[in-house]
């Protein structure tokens, strides 16, 4: 009986500077397979579709349940998490490419440092350290906690940057996710105390004004985060902040 095969076309790259090339694989099908388990199969038997021995494909993944953000890649033309990309639901041959908005390290491994730099830039944290015990912080209304929780699902996966036409090497745009994180931390009752500081960072070079409203981010976000609502809300807040600092201090 002929074995059912999964046909993969992987865009590979040996070093950060070398030219990418495509390699095809035909691997045995198993029930419930996802793209990660298909890549693991290649790792076990690194033989391409022509039957030649090849280097196993390199990728990054951790949680395997779509919460860590590490296994983002472009699968059949759309950036998404490889762990939640089920083989049964994908059209074959499955085209797997790295998210080239980021520097490719090797094969499907990318360097998402720019996202962590952006989070540092917009001060996406809540300063709570003091020289003495500051006591419990103010309480957060349950209605606000509910929508803020949705924003906190961001896993820095980079899909919104890959989908955004304004995130590229010609533009300094930091990306949609960072703007949404400012909204999250500015909503927190303790985080609110540093609201103005974060808004100022969004008004800097590469900040919120670089959004071109293509709204691909909200359509692509694997966590369903209302990114464009966050962006529009921060548009309002930065405008208010700009007027405040222009007229009052």
């Amino acid at each position: 009986m002929a074995e059912k095969l999964v046909h993969l076309i992987v865009t590979r790259q040996d070093t950060p500077d070398s030219t990418p090339y495509k390699e095809e694989f035909k691997i045995p099908y198993r029930i419930g397979m996802n793209v990660i388990s298909a890549l693991m199969e290649i790792q076990r038997t690194p033989v391409n579709a022509q039957g030649q021995k090849t280097k196993p494909v390199i990728w990054e993944s951790n949680c395997l349940e779509e919460v860590c953000g590490a296994c983002s890649m472009v699968i059949n033309g759309k950036p998404r998490q490889a762990c939640s990309a089920l083989i049964d639901k994908l059209e074959q041959p499955i085209r797997i490419e790295p998210m080239t908005t980021f520097p490719v390290q090797r094969d499907l491994t990318i360097d998402r440092s720019r996202m962590f730099d952006a989070l540092k830039r917009v001060k996406a944290w809540i300063p709570i350290d003091g020289t003495h015990n500051l006591g419990p912080g103010p309480r957060m209304p349950e209605v606000d906690r509910q929508w803020a929780y949705e924003l906190s699902k961001c896993m820095t996966c980079g899909v919104c940057l890959e989908a955004c036409p304004n995130v590229n090497d010609k533009s300094p745009f930091i990306g949609p996710f960072a703007i949404s994180q400012v909204r999250l931390f500015n909503e927190h009752p303790t985080g609110k105390m540093n609201k103005a500081e974060r808004l100022e960072t969004l008004m800097d070079e590469g900040g919120i004004s670089y959004c071109g409203n293509s709204q691909n981010c909200v359509m692509s976000c694997p966590k369903g985060i209302p990114l464009t609502t966050s962006i529009a809300h921060m548009n309002k807040e930065t405008t208010k902040q700009a007027l405040k600092s222009f007229f009052f201090s």
Partner: peptide, 20 residues
């Protein structure tokens, strides 16, 4: 501004992206 963007409409055919 326009030439700072890299349109990706063949990949993302959403309404607002076409408007973009």
């Amino acid at each position: 501004l326009a030439f700072q963007g890299k349109p990706n409409n063949s990949q993302f055919k959403y309404y607002r992206n076409q408007m973009y």
